[in-house]
Simulated assay, not measured.
Amino acid sequence: MADRIDAAARSRNMSRIRSKGMKPEMAVRRIAHRLGYRFRLHRRDLPGTPDLVFPARRKIIFVHGCFWHRHADPSCRAAHTPRSNEVYWEAKIARNIARDDAARVELERTGWNVLELWECGIKNAEATERAIRNFLGPPGPAS
């Protein structure tokens, strides 16, 4: 099936998709801050440009969109392949997954602990709060 819009229109649409400050990321940032954790955002000197970085704890949180990063949970409805231009989308999402995996391996190799939170799971604020607390430990200065 051919695309319904031309390449220039698709390019315009894709250029408007942001990678920072989206609703799921903002929700995680609000929860972490409310719990008393302090963090850095989008450190470009780290592989994968993590969403939230807790340097003193050597911990990182990635907030993944289920569509763009292909959430493997079968109950997640957002992790699908569009019916138009399937070959393009499969390749695109496969590259995203490979890039995520490479960044995670490199971060863990250099001593960072990584938590991935998925867009669909963030809707449950209590579960997200529990996951953050379990991952980061008690708030306050890291010892």
Rank of each mutant, 00 (worst) to 15 (best):
A94F: 01
F62N: 03
L41W: 04
A142L: 05
R4W: 01
C120W: 06
Y88E: 02
C120I: 09
R43E: 13
A27F: 00
R83D: 12
D51F: 04
I97H: 01
R4A: 07
F54C: 05
V114R: 10
L136P: 04
D51E: 03
R44A: 15
N85C: 12
C76A: 05
R40K: 14
R109N: 15
L107T: 08
F67S: 02
N134P: 00
R104K: 14
S19V: 00
E116A: 10
R58P: 06
G121S: 09
L117H: 04
D45A: 06
D101W: 01
T128N: 10
I93F: 15
S84P: 00
L41H: 05
L46S: 09
H42P: 05
A125Q: 15
P139W: 12
A2E: 13
A8M: 04
P24V: 11
I132S: 06
D51R: 02
A9D: 09
W118A: 04
G137F: 11
A8F: 07
D45H: 10
I5R: 11
I61M: 07
R44Y: 00
K59D: 02
D100K: 08
S11K: 12
R18G: 14
M1H: 13
F67N: 03
I122V: 14
A32H: 10
V105W: 00
G36I: 07
R40E: 12
L115G: 06
D3Q: 13
W112F: 10
E86R: 15
D51A: 05
R16H: 14
S15V: 01
A2S: 13
D73Y: 00
K92R: 13
